[in-house]
Structure formats: C-alpha cells, structure tokens
C-alpha cells in the first residue's frame, strides 16, 4: 500500500467513524433515497443534496456505505452468474450482459476494484445446496398448542439434532440439544405466552459424528 492509498484509507475510516449521536431522523434522507442515490438513479440535484447530507451526517455516511456494499455484492454476484441473466449492477445500467462478455469488454472495470475486495473467503454462494434439512410440517397449517411437534427430514449420518425456536422478533421460545429423532415436541408452557396466530421461527442443526453440523433454513410456522 503506498502513501496515498494509506492516507486515503485512514481518511475514509475516520470519515465513517460512528458518530456518538444520531441526527434527528426527519433530517435524514430515507433509506430508499440513499439506495437510489448510490445506484445513480436520482436526478442530479437530488443526488447532490444527498451527498451533501452525508458530508455532514456520519450516520447517513454509514448508511451510504452499506448501500454501496450491498450494491457491490449484487454486482459481483451478477458477474458470477450464468450468461444471459439480468445484471442489475452498478448504477442499474448493466443489463442483459453476459458476465463473461462484460468482463472481457471491460464494462465492469469499475466493478473490478471491489470485486477484488470482496472475493469471498468462504464459498458462501454455494451454501444453499448443503442445507438439506427440510420442514415436514404441512405448509400453512397452524401448529396445535397441545401437540406442537416440529418435524423435519432426517439427514443421513447425522447423530443428533439441535433445535432452536424463536418468535418473529427473535425472542427465544425453546431450544433443545441432542435430539436423536427428527422431531421436537415444544413444551406447552413455552407457548403459553404467545397469541394465536403467532409465527414461530425454527431452525435445526444436524450434528455429525466428526462434530461438523449442517444448519437448516429458518422455517416459519403459525401457531394455533
């Protein structure tokens, strides 16, 4: 890293250092406005106003950087997808370009800088194929309180299952470790404080003999 790069990195870090106090939210652009600004979708004057705001407001500067990061990941992801897929990348302007062709043509030169920065250290885009635990509850059917049994597809080789159950606002309802069957009966007491129709989030970890585990998706199920 040369002197200029180091200096810029330091200034950038300081500029986005978290502020101690958040500004009144009514003074800040909406998240949608920041999103549109980052993607170059705002009229010039409106864009300048948002930029000026982030020059004064550390919180919105941070929001802006988050938008940039999310947008860049989308662009990087698009560049990795199969040719022909719609690419809604930087500034929303790269569409219907085959990723390979775009790279070859140098159209994603700007993207290159951050592609380099966000090359994943783990194969995150392929995790979905490894989550094989599926819910066996009938879709949409409320879970009876007195017989609230969560069921899932067993994974071959798994020796036990850990289960965690939360409410939608992520308050813990129940947990269980070391379940040997591919089901878990929720204690009625754990559900007593929940209103009818409350939605439960639940997740299963399948544990294997070598200690590794496979985490299921988070399922949601309404409570009777």
């Amino acid at each position: 890293m040369n002197q200029d790069t180091r200096e810029l990195a330091k200034l950038r870090a300081a500029f986005t250092a978290p502020a101690t106090a958040a500004p009144p939210p009514e003074d800040c652009p909406s998240p949608e406005t920041i999103w549109a600004a980052v993607r170059g979708e705002l009229p010039p004057q409106a864009l300048r106003e948002v930029v000026d705001h982030t020059a004064r407001c550390a919180a919105c500067a941070e929001d802006w950087r988050l938008a940039v990061e999310v947008d860049r990941q989308e662009a990087a992801q698009a560049a990795e997808t199969a040719p022909g897929k719609v690419i809604v990348g930087r500034f929303g302007r790269f569409r219907q370009l085959a990723a390979a062709a775009a790279l070859a043509a140098g159209l994603l030169v700007a993207v290159g800088v951050y592609r380099q920065a966000i090359v994943p250290s783990q194969p995150i885009y392929r995790e979905a194929q490894q989550t094989q635990v599926r819910s066996l509850l009938p879709a949409g059917q409320p879970l009876p309180r007195q017989a609230a049994v969560l069921r899932w597809t067993p994974l071959p080789g798994a020796v036990s299952y850990d289960v965690s159950v939360s409410t939608e606002d992520l308050r813990q309802v129940a947990t269980a470790q070391g379940q040997t069957a591919a089901e878990y009966r929720l204690p009625p007491a754990a559900l007593s404080g929940l209103p009818a129709g409350a939605r439960l989030l639940w997740q299963v970890d399948a544990i294997f003999p070598d200690g590794h585990h496979v985490t299921s998706p988070t399922f949601t199920t309404p409570l009777q």
């Binding site: 989550t131 985490t215 998706p217 988070t218 309404p222």
Partner: peptide
C-alpha cells in the same frame, strides 16, 4: 441458545 445462524435461508411454510 444457538442463534439463528449465518447460513439461514428464510422460508415460510405458509408461502410457496
């Protein structure tokens, strides 16, 4: 409690 993890997929039983 094990937190809902980083490899979450959010799927609703009540949705397609």
């Amino acid at each position: 409690m094990r937190r809902l993890g980083r490899s979450d997929t959010v799927i609703s039983d009540s949705q397609k």
